[in-house]
Amino acid sequence: MSQAFTKAMARNIFYGGTVFFLLLFLALSFDTVSALPKRDNRANLTEAVAQGKKLWENNNCIGCHTLLGEGAYFAPELGNAFKRLGGKDGVMAFIKSRPAGGIPGRRSMPQFNFTDAQLNALAEFLKYSSEINSANWPPNVQG
């Protein structure tokens, strides 16, 4: 780099730029958090949904699935699984019916032996997730 551009100038760009864009990011984040109540479906965030989210986490579901596109890419997207599987009954029946020993030669979800109350909570969590305003993502029902 040319001699006219000094180390002090580079340093000032670093500190000035970092502080400026960090503050801008904080301002945008503040705006986002204020705008979320209209988008994040919090009105339907019930006890059952919270319990469902905990089950989702405690069984590391994200180690195979994506949820709103984030997670692992080994198993189907779950942000719209509620719609794809035909509502609550479909979700509960699917999770319940996984064979404990897997399926020969194929990928299979483990059998978690959930109680009916737990299955209900998971279905409620997936219903709540499917109603978040995700800017029309995923592109279609296949996720």
Binding site: C61, I62, C64, A72, G102, I103, S108, P110
Partner: peptide, 17 residues
């Protein structure tokens, strides 16, 4: 490619973690 490899002893989510 072999979906049942090591299943259910080491399921995919555990190996990935």
């Amino acid at each position: 490619v072999l979906g049942d490899f090591l299943f259910p002893e080491i399921p995919f989510n555990v190996a990935r973690m």
